[in-house]
Design a binder for these strands. Structure first.
Lengths: 298, 298
DNA sequence: TTTTTTATTGCAGCATTTGCAACATTCAGT
DNA sequence: ACTGAATGTTGCAAATGCTGCAATAAAAAA
C-alpha cells in the first residue's frame, strides 16, 4: 500500500467510476484497476463490488475508506509540521507563469506559500506559456506553470493543478470574420486565424486542421494567449485559447466562444520543475506546498 | 511511502544500524539507504542524523516514528477485522514441514490460525525440509516450511520466520570420532560425516568442503535433519544441522556443537507458497495470519 | 440483435528498484 | 600520524514491476 493507491481509492470511492477516477488521477483505467486489485489482495478483502456496469463500495470498503482518509490526513499534517519546524527557510525562488495564471490560481498559491514561508522571496516572471517548459529545462526558472506536454522530458516532474478546455473564440463586434462564421457550412479555410507562434496550443490546432484536411489561413502569429484574445477582440480573426485565459481576460465581453464539430484536447495546466532542482529545500518547499493544496482540493 | 518503507524505518529507528536492519529486512544496505532517503524526500525532513559512524533519530524522526507505528498498527488491525468479518472460511489447507518445525514455531502458528479460522481443517504432513520447496512446486502441498533457497523460483513467494545457524555437531559418548576431533589440527578428511542426501544443508556443506579443499569421508547419507542428529548421537560421525533442530531434539544432551574456523551461512527458515495458490482464500488466510504474527514479532 | 458503455487482461515497452562493487569517511589501535 | 576495520552512500548493470495500449468480456440500451 502506498499513498498514491490510497488517493486513487478515495477518489474512486466517491466517483464509483473507473473512467472518471483514472482520468482525474492521470493514469489509465487499467492501471487504476490493477491498483485497486493490488490493494484488495494486500488487504485480503474486496473493497468494491463491481460488475462491468456498476461499482459499489462494500462494507469492507467503507471501513477502509475511514482508514485511508485518516492515514492521508495524518501524513499530510505531519509533513506540514515537519517542514515548518526545523529550519526557517530563507532565500529566493524563481517562478515563471503566464499573466493569466498569475491572475488566477497563482494568487492563492503564493498566499499559502507566503504564510508558511514568510522569509522566502518570490521572483515571479510572467510570459508566454509556450516557453515555460524550455525555461525550466534551461534552469532559467525554478518552477513554471505550463500545460502538460504530450511527452514529458525525463528530467522533469509535473504536477497538475487544473484542467481547462481549449476553445475557439471569435469577435463579437461586426467585422468580416463574423459574416463568414454565420455561413453554413463555415468556410474554415478562408477564415483568418490568430494563432500561437509555437507551443502546445499551436500543435493541437495544427492537428485539428490536418484532421479536417484544411489549409488554414493564418492571419497573425503571436506569442502569448493573452495577445490572441486581444487581437480576436479587435476583430482580426478567430483564435484558440485555453478557457482559463478567456475567463480572466478583461476583453471577455468582446469575444464569444464558438462551437466546432470536434473538441480540441484540453490543457492540463500544472507546475513543472527540474527533478534535480527539488533537492533545493526552497524549491522543494514550494513544490510540496502546491501538492498539499492539490490534495486538499480532492 | 509504502508499508515496507515504514517497517524498515521502524526497525532502523530501533537498531540505529543500517547493516543490522538491512539484514533483518532482507534487503541490501544500499536499498535500505535509498528507502530512507526516499522517505525523507517525500516528507521534506531529515529522519536520521547520520555520519558514517553513527545513526541517531532526529526530532522529526521521533515524530515520524509515532506516525509509522500508528499507521502500521491501524492497517494490521483493519486487515484482521476485514478478514474475519465477511465470510466464515471453511475448507481444508495442506501444510508441510519438518518434525522440528512442527515441534517449535508451527505450534504457535497453528494456534493463532485455529483461533481466527476455527472452521478450516489443517492437514499437516511432516517430512524432510529438503523436499519442501519441491512439494510446493508440484502443488502437493499448499504451504511448506522451508529454508530460503539461494535462488527462489519465480512462481514462489517466501516469507521468513526465523533465522537459525547451521552447526557442526559431534557425539558426546566415547567413540573413534571423538578421538579424531581432539587432535590438532583436526584431520577433517578422515572424520566420518553423516550428511543430508540432498537439499540446502548439503549444498552448504559441500561448499564448505570445497573452500577448505577437503575430500570428505561420507559415512552415511540420510534424509531429514532429525535422522542426522540421531546417528551423530549414536557416535557414527559428525553432522551438520540447523540450530533449531538441535534445540528441539530429545537427543540434545547426547551431542555437542563444535567450532570451526569459518561458519556456514545460516538457514533462513520461513513459509513458502505457490503465488497462484494465494488466490485461494484459505491459503491466503494462512499466509496473512503468518504475516501478522511476523509483524508483531518486530 | 446490434450498439454502447465500461471494467479487466495479455503483452510489450519502459521506468524504477535492486544488489554488487567501489568509494568516502570515521574511529580504534598501534 | 598511520593503518585497518567498520559502515553509510553512490555508480552502474540487471532484473523486477508497473504502465499503457489494444483486445476482451459482459451487461444494458437502442
Amino acid at each position: 500500500m502506498d499513498l498514491r493507491a490510497l488517493k486513487q481509492f478515495l477518489h474512486l470511492s466517491q466517483t464509483l467510476h473507473y473512467g472518471k477516477t483514472s482520468e482525474a488521477m492521470h493514469v489509465s483505467p487499467s492501471t487504476l484497476s490493477r491498483s485497486i486489485t493490488r490493494l484488495e489482495e494486500e488487504l485480503g478483502a474486496t473493497l468494491f463490488e463491481r460488475d462491468n456496469r456498476t461499482v459499489v463500495l462494500t462494507q469492507a470498503g467503507r471501513q477502509f475508506r475511514e482508514f485511508a482518509e485518516a492515514t492521508l490526513a495524518h501524513w499530510q499534517e505531519l509533513r506540514h509540521k515537519l517542514q515548518n519546524d526545523p529550519i526557517e527557510l530563507r532565500g529566493q525562488i524563481r517562478l515563471y507563469c503566464s499573466v493569466t495564471a498569475s491572475y488566477s490560481f497563482m494568487l492563492g498559491m503564493l498566499t499559502a506559500f507566503r504564510t508558511r514561508f514568510p522569509n522566502i522571496e518570490v521572483v515571479l516572471e510572467t510570459g508566454d506559456a509556450a516557453q515555460a517548459i524550455q525555461k525550466v529545462m534551461d534552469d532559467e526558472t525554478d518552477i513554471a506553470v505550463a500545460p502538460r506536454p504530450d511527452h514529458l522530458p525525463n528530467p522533469l516532474s509535473f504536477q497538475s493543478i487544473v484542467e481547462t478546455p481549449l476553445e475557439f473564440i471569435a469577435p463579437i463586434i461586426d467585422c468580416p470574420v463574423k459574416a463568414q462564421l454565420s455561413q453554413n457550412p463555415v468556410p474554415w479555410s478562408q477564415i483568418p486565424f490568430v494563432v500561437s507562434e509555437y507551443g502546445l496550443a499551436r500543435k493541437r490546432l495544427d492537428h485539428w486542421f490536418r484532421s479536417h484536411s484544411l489549409k488554414p489561413h493564418i492571419y497573425a502569429q503571436v506569442a502569448g494567449h493573452e495577445a490572441i484574445v486581444s487581437m480576436v477582440g479587435l476583430g482580426f480573426g478567430v483564435g484558440v485559447v485555453p478557457g482559463l485565459v478567456i475567463e480572466n481576460s478583461p476583453l471577455k465581453n468582446k469575444i464569444e466562444r464558438i462551437q466546432t464539430d470536434t473538441v480540441l484536447e484540453p490543457f492540463d495546466v500544472g507546475l513543472c520543475v527540474l527533478n534535480r532542482r527539488l533537492q533545493d529545500p526552497l524549491v522543494n518547499a514550494f513544490w510540496q506546498t502546491a501538492k498539499d493544496l492539490g490534495d486538499q482540493a480532492h
